[in-house]
């Protein structure tokens, strides 16, 4: 992986997307989003809930409490991955092929078929950027990118970050817009690697790298806080940045 899409760069980009949100929640097996959330916590005092942590999981009413409070609008940002993501921001977490007898089965929808509707800003994060993952039409809709008028939908996808590109999602027209690119990657490469059509801002800029301050946070308080949930990853991150 080139420098411009190393873990430190992607974490910093995700942290910028979180901004100064009040409350961000992160699901299982998501070390980069978790690091980005902890960066927002150190910098802006963002409340961070890591579902598979003990220290950073404050729920005492069982795991349903996450969904109960998300339904009330108490979570501002959540992350979702996807086996496939299409140009309308439909997300597939179930598998490829024709359901139910799939060619390749993946774990399943987890909370996506609910959280993608009620969390105001859902950040789609999938490092692999290829025609296999970013497809014209997903084989199974775990959560649709948009809903017709009349459907209760205060939330939905806001961005898609891959190792090559940052897209914003326009819910009104149901299309992605390329906002920034990995510095070594020309737009033509992104177009070839993307299975769906997308809009783009004029002269798509290279995305910015982490500042000295970002790197200090990552090495220090972020790596320390991350170590409880992701000890291996936190150690590698701190060693890489030392």
């Amino acid at each position: 992986m080139t420098t411009g899409s190393s873990d430190a760069w992607l974490i910093t980009l995700l942290a910028r997307l979180i901004g100064s949100a009040r409350h961000v929640a992160v699901g299982a097996a998501s070390p980069l989003p978790a690091a980005a959330a902890l960066m927002a916590k150190v910098r802006h005092g963002t409340r961070v809930t890591l579902l598979h942590s003990r220290r950073y999981n404050p729920f005492t009413d069982g795991s349903r409490e996450l969904f109960d409070l998300a339904g009330q609008g108490r979570i501002d940002v959540f992350f979702l991955g996807g086996v496939q993501i299409d140009g309308q921001a439909n997300v597939n977490l179930v598998g490829t092929g024709t359901y139910p007898r799939l060619d390749k089965r993946f774990p399943g929808c987890f909370g996506a078929a609910y959280l993608a509707y009620v969390v105001p800003r859902v950040i789609l994060f999938r490092e692999e950027h290829s025609p296999r993952t970013l497809v014209e039409r997903v084989d199974f809709i775990s959560a649709p990118g948009t809903s017709p008028p009349g459907v209760f939908r205060p939330g939905g996808p806001s961005h898609l970050l891959t190792s090559l590109a940052l897209f914003a999602f326009d819910r009104a027209i149901g299309r992605f817009r390329l906002e920034a690119r990995q510095p070594d990657t020309p737009i033509e490469t992104i177009q070839r690697a993307t299975g769906f059509a997308f809009d783009q801002v004029p002269s798509v800029p290279p995305w910015p790298g982490p500042t000295t301050d970002d790197l200090a946070l990552l090495r220090g308080p972020v790596a320390t806080a991350l170590a409880e949930s992701y000890p291996e990853f936190a150690r590698r991150l701190a060693a890489h940045l030392a």
Binding site: V94, Y99, A113, L115, S142, P144, V151
Partner: peptide, 11 residues
């Protein structure tokens, strides 16, 4: 809440 328009609901 949620679910409307998903293939989960369809099945």
């Amino acid at each position: 809440r949620g679910l409307l328009g998903s293939d989960l609901l369809a099945h």
